[in-house]
């Protein structure tokens, strides 16, 4: 049994904690939910994941050493909750057959290189036209298709704007690992967008024929 005085102090600190905690959580709720949506891919599970992470965060609030770090701290809890939920459900790790080596073909894949036409005159910009045709839904689906390991870093970096250093802290891996996973994740993402665009008929003519077309066009005009 703890002395009475200590108990009272504890009560006061907790009341202060709660106001701060609630304000922070409510302020970050859209962001936490946005990240959760891309991690678990549906609203219901995303709501459960956020609620679970918030509960865990409250229980381990003493582990937050610096209140300035609240955002990376709670995202770390969200990410860990997601990872441990995957393990509990005995979801087969999707990364088994994938190496983290960024020199793989997927990392080298570049939408820009597929789309860019160096002979085009300045008013033509097929790569920007391509991006303009993509819907929010197309992008979300491409993120969802990434294996967990790479999806997490793409979500933390491109969607939530965390720095490499912050991500290293969130995932407890070296910065070099963050970089290589991110490179790999982005390569896979661009490949998925390319595949989707082809299937959806967003890309109609082949690069070769359009190049010829623009070459002819250029000769006619100049």
């Amino acid at each position: 049994m703890m002395p009475l005085q200590l108990n009272q102090e504890e009560t006061v600190t907790q009341a202060d904690d709660r106001g701060f905690f609630e304000e922070k959580v409510i302020g970050l709720l859209d962001q936490l939910f946005g990240a959760a949506m891309r991690l678990v891919k549906n609203r219901e599970d995303a709501e459960d994941l956020v609620a679970e992470a918030v509960t865990k965060a409250w229980a381990s609030r003493r582990s937050l050493k610096d209140t300035e770090n609240f955002r990376p701290w709670i995202f770390r809890i969200l990410t860990n909750t997601f990872i441990s939920d995957c393990r509990k459900r005995a979801v087969r790790p999707q990364t088994e057959t994938l190496s983290e080596n960024p020199s793989d073909a997927e990392t080298a894949f570049s939408l820009f290189e597929e789309l860019h036409q160096p002979f085009l005159l300045w008013w033509g910009n097929p790569e920007k036209e391509f991006l303009n045709k993509l819907l929010r839904e197309d992008l979300a689906k491409a993120v969802d298709a990434l294996p967990d390991l790479f999806r997490i870093v793409v979500v933390l970096s491109d969607l939530e704007g965390f720095s490499y250093q912050e991500m290293a802290g969130i995932l407890k891996v070296p910065v070099g690992t963050v970089r290589s996973r991110l490179a790999r994740g982005r390569g896979l993402l661009q490949k998925a967008l390319w595949r989707h665009a082809k299937e959806a008929g967003l890309i109609k003519e082949s690069k070769k024929s359009s190049e010829r077309f623009y070459e002819k066009d250029k000769n006619d005009r100049l």
Partner: peptide
């Protein structure tokens, strides 16, 4: 990158916000 960030933006419903508030 900008488009990805926009695609990832979500807004929670009022019901969910209430749920989190009552949890807190």
């Amino acid at each position: 990158k900008t488009q990805l960030r926009e695609a990832g933006r979500e807004t929670v419903g009022a019901a969910f916000e209430e749920k989190i508030k009552s949890l807190l």
